[in-house]
Structure formats: C-alpha cells, structure tokens
Design a protein around this nucleic acid. Structure first.
Lengths: 234, 234
DNA sequence: ATTTGGTTTTGACTTAAGTCAAAGGGTTCG
DNA sequence: CGAACCCTTTGACTTAAGTCAAAACCAAAT
C-alpha cells in the first residue's frame, strides 16, 4: 500500500490523512533490477524520488570513466530533491536536469517518484513539510561536508578505517564477540564511494588486516583492534 | 544601518517592516580584521552569520595542518546555518558546535550574528523564510556537489582551468580586450580551495601560461585562448 | 556440473602531486 | 629606510595512489 510507505518517509510524517490521500494519487511507484538506471544526469527533471526497498547509488562519472558515489540511499530516504528549488517562486522550468546519476544496487529496488510541480504546490501551503525539508537538507549538507573533509584531508587508509568505524557505529554488529560490519555494497562501489579504486581499496584492507586491526571475509569485516583502528582513522 | 543590511539578505527579503525591526533588535553585528577567526569548529553554536562587507572563508584543517576551504562567503550571504536544524522540533541543544572554521580574509570584514533560538522561532511562523531557507540550502548543496565532483574526478590542471572559466563567467571582466579574472583571495587560499597546495597551483598556472592559454600577472589572470582552456577543463 | 560473467586480488610499473628547502617578491611597520 | 614578514615561485626529491594486465574467486544460469 503506497500510503503506508509514504507515512514512513520523514518529510511526510505529520501529514493529515487527506493530504496523504492526495499525495498517493499523484506519485508514481516504480521497480528496478540491480544495475538498472533510475535516471541520468542528462535527463529532464520530473521530480524527486523515495527509496522504499533496496538500495540506490547517486553518482557522477568523469569523462574518462571514473565513478564517484556521492550518496547511498536506503529505505524511506529521498533523493534528487535539489532541482525542485532551482529558482523557487519563479515558474518551474522544463530545462532542469537531474544533478547526478542514480542506479539501483539491488534487485527489487522499489522507488516512488513524486512529481515536481505538484509537490511544490503542496510545499507552498504546508509549513510542516517545509521544516522537514529544511532538516533533511541540513542533514545532507552535513553529510557532504563530512564527505569532502574525508576525501580532501585524509589518505585512503584513514578513509577506510574511518568508514569501518562509522559503519559499525551506525549499526553495531558483533561477530564472535568482536564488533563487525557487513558491507551492503560491492567493494567496487565502496571504492567509488571512498574516492579511490578497487585495487587500492583491496590493498588497503589487506594492509589493515596484516597489521591485525581488522579481519576481512567477503562482505564481513571484523574489527580486531578498535583502538588502533581509531588511531589509523585520524 | 543594520536593517538596511538585513533587507539585502536573500532569506530576509519579503519580511515586513515590523518583522525586520524585531530581527534588528536581536542580531549582533561584529567586525573583524584580516586573519581573525570568526569561529572554530570546536566552539558552541550561537547562531548563523551574514557577511555584510569583506570576505569569509569556511574551512577545515587536517590533523597534520593541511587546510581545505569549503566555501568563500561574500557580501550578503549567510554561513553556518546548518546546526540550526540539528534535530529541529526538539529542544535546541547547547552542545551543538560550528561545522567548520571561519576566518575573515579582508580587513574590515563586517558580519552579523543571528542567534539560533530566536531565529528558529521566527522560522516556525514564517513560511516565506522557510522557502527561502530551503532554496538557499538547495543552492549550497548544488555547490558542494559540484565541488566534490571537481575534486574527486578531475586532476589539478582541470580544476584550475575550470575555476578560471567559471570565475570569468560569474564576473565577465576584460583586460585589453581579452576575458580576464581578478583573484579576490591569495594563491595560498586558492590552492586550499582547489584541494591542492600552493606549489602545485603555482606550477599549474605556469604550465597553462607556457602553453599560451592564460597570462598570470599577480592577482590578474588573462584568458588568451578560451577554447583550449575549455578543453583543458574537462 | 560446467560455463559465463562479474568481482576481487595480486603483481609490476608509472605518474601526478606532495614534501622539503631555499630563493625571490612585495608590503607593512617601526 | 631597512627589517621583518608573508606570499609566491623554483628546484630536487619522494611517495601515495593510479594504471594495466593477469590470475583467482565466486555466483548465477544453462
């Protein structure tokens, strides 16, 4: 049920049932397979998306084919809202494009498209949604600030160590008593997210493992010496 | 006159005279000399700022002293708004910190501090300001996206070329008939903004000059061959 | 089970950009 | 005016991380 999904989306919490009904009528659910493109940055902007199930990567590609992942969007999070607000107040332009590429990273990735024009109307009359939108943007800005800081001021080893630590902090797993993480993306994608390439990521993980800080087994990484890993992260 | 300054600030355009008066009463103007710190990222968050005259750099420093500039804030633009919206709706926390460091880059840099709690109240009751705030954040997000793209997917030469071209596009100067730019920051700062170091920037400018694309004279850069410079930028 | 295709790792090599040290320039200030 | 300081440039050198190529690994699909 679409309206049940929408209720779980941060910016829509607090909407009345009528507002939700109205929203339900205008949104467009879509399903993608692993590797499917949701949009390219060359396409005209239709509206923003919500990931319902699965995982979506937002990424840019350089002229010579290198990829950099800006965000990974999991369930009930939104993406591609920024172009909604290019010259807000003015007429919405058909020339707006998506700001980056989006690809489904898992089979059965369900997303919901919220059309731009109609959502803008909703927003103009609902201060609650406005505030949520601001908070969402603030969070995203914080993330991007952090991302830039990581990539510009730290070498690959520090970025990898720091990634493992924050992933474990967000989702504190254990594997035979030790803190651990499970990658939800391929190592290729992780490399693109950390601003490096698969070969370098592989070597870096190996190095951290050889030094006894972590233990890598496929998509599972056990943290063997969290204190030294923390030292390596700054 | 403070209220005249405030009127020119994007998020406050459209405020009524009474609202402006009220705002004027709560803000705190400050003046800084070149090199003065406006805040460190370790300081408790008091509120956001507006640059009135001068120039402000927002930057991060790595453990070993390397600096990276995230934004350069010129007249009538705001900075450090993000922490206003950490857990919006909840009580404002005294533990919030500034997200980066801020330094005045020119003598007589005047800024206005808008205290957090009071501004939040204003915002909650004024959908116009909300919408402006969203638009401002959207613009900033766009900038950061672009910034990350530049730094992760381009080498220094492309970044420098691209910087010169966009600086000229924003402010299309001419110097004896040729398109030109005037740097408003030191080359040290420019290097930190472009994610590199002064030595590398210096060599890169020299290379572009030797190849006949630009001509560097102190803070003035003439574009001698814009087509080839464009080719070097992608 | 075997093929197929993608992902990950390893090795050998290259290179862009950083480090370190020193020399020029230019500006401000006593 | 000269000293002091910062900014910028240059040269010599190092190094982290990228490239290219091949092998190893793994999982889905026939």
């Amino acid at each position: 049920m679409i309206s049940d999904d929408l209720k779980k989306v941060y910016i829509f919490t607090g909407l009345s049932d009528e507002e939700l009904d109205e929203l339900t009528k205008i949104v467009r659910p879509k399903t993608f397979k692993k590797g499917d493109i949701i949009f390219f940055d060359t396409e005209p902007y239709l509206g923003f998306y919500i990931t319902i199930t699965g995982l979506v990567k937002i990424y840019k590609i350089s002229k010579d084919g290198r990829e950099h992942i800006l965000h990974l969007i999991s369930s009930f999070n939104t993406f591609a809202e920024v172009p909604l607000f290019e010259n807000f107040g003015e007429e919405f332009e058909d020339s707006f494009r998506y700001p980056a590429n989006a690809m489904a990273l898992e089979d059965d990735t369900k997303v919901i498209l919220v059309p731009a024009r109609k959502f803008r109307k909703l927003l103009e009359n609902n201060i609650k949604i406005c505030i949520k939108m601001i908070s969402g943007f603030a969070k995203r800005l914080k993330h991007l600030n952090h991302h830039i800081e990581e990539i510009t001021l730290k070498n690959v080893t520090k970025r990898v160590a720091s990634f493992i630590l924050t992933a474990n902090k967000k989702d504190p797993q254990k594997l035979n008593g030790l803190p651990a993480i499970t990658l939800n993306v391929s190592k290729n994608d992780l490399a693109a997210y950390l601003g490096t390439i698969p070969e370098t990521l592989s070597r870096t993980l190996k190095k951290l493992q050889d030094e006894g800080m972590i233990n890598v087994e496929g998509k599972n990484i056990k943290i063997e010496d969290i204190e030294r890993l923390k030292d390596s992260a700054v």
